[in-house]
């Protein structure tokens, strides 16, 4: 884990790969499961979380010498809730259709543990540049994990990718698409398999690359 040591770039890269919030730390599972039935939803959700984690890390890091330890959780929560509300209003103003699909999962970013965890672990004790590098890494890592799930589920479930058909038309017309992938069970199954694959790759890496 790159907390504290290494360059800002290491901090950024850790969030995307070795310390990926979803696939390695298993945080922020609710939106990961709920909004990945299409790639578009996954990307918008990823962008919204990235915005909130960047703003929360920025504010926390700027105020880190003023925040009293007692009230820090309160301040984190207040900051996060504020920027989530802003993100929610912006989505409803500029991306109305997607925001309707995401529904309650936009306000639920408030309780996404990734964000409060980054404030507590990194932003409260690190410089602004480092906190930002961390936030962008985590945001990108989160978006990437969601997109992977979105790609799998959308292709298998609807035969499309970003609403463009990618599989032969007969796949959907003859009812061979796996509707279960778009439904809730498909989310659990896909994430379970993806987490298994990631664990497998990590253990191979740890033992020197020989399977």
């Amino acid at each position: 884990m790159a907390d504290g040591n290494g360059s800002n770039f290491d901090q950024f890269a850790a969030g995307v790969f070795s310390n990926n919030p979803v696939l390695v730390q298993l945080l922020g599972m609710c939106p990961t499961l709920a909004v990945t039935n299409s790639v578009e939803n996954a990307l918008v959700m990823g962008a919204a979380v990235t915005f909130v984690v960047v703003m929360s890390n920025l504010i926390t890091s700027l105020l880190r010498n003023l925040i009293q330890p007692h009230v820090r959780i309160l301040i984190f929560t207040l900051t996060i809730a504020t920027f989530v509300t802003i993100a929610d209003m912006a989505l409803r103003a500029y991306m109305f259709d997607v925001s309707k699909k995401l529904g309650a999962f936009v306000p639920l970013i408030i309780v996404n543990c990734i964000i409060i965890c980054r404030a507590e672990v990194v932003a409260i004790k690190c410089s602004v540049s480092r906190s930002l590098a961390d936030a962008f890494g985590m945001g990108l890592g989160f978006t990437m994990a969601l997109t992977i799930l979105g790609i799998v589920r959308e292709i298998l479930g609807a035969g499309t990718l970003l609403k463009q058909p990618v599989l032969p038309a007969a796949f959907v017309e003859n009812g061979h698409n796996w509707v279960i992938m778009i439904l809730p069970p498909g989310a659990f199954l896909t994430l379970g398999v993806v987490v298994g694959v990631v664990n497998h790759l990590r253990s191979r890496k740890a033992t020197g690359g020989v399977a």
Binding site: L183, A187, G196, N199
Partner: peptide, 23 residues
């Protein structure tokens, strides 16, 4: 349970089956 699936992996797969039952 296959090693990579131990812990979160198998839990998620079981949750998927439970979710199917609940549908």
């Amino acid at each position: 349970v296959p090693k990579p699936l131990r812990g979160a992996g198998i839990t998620l797969l079981v949750a998927g089956m439970l979710a199917m039952a609940f549908t």
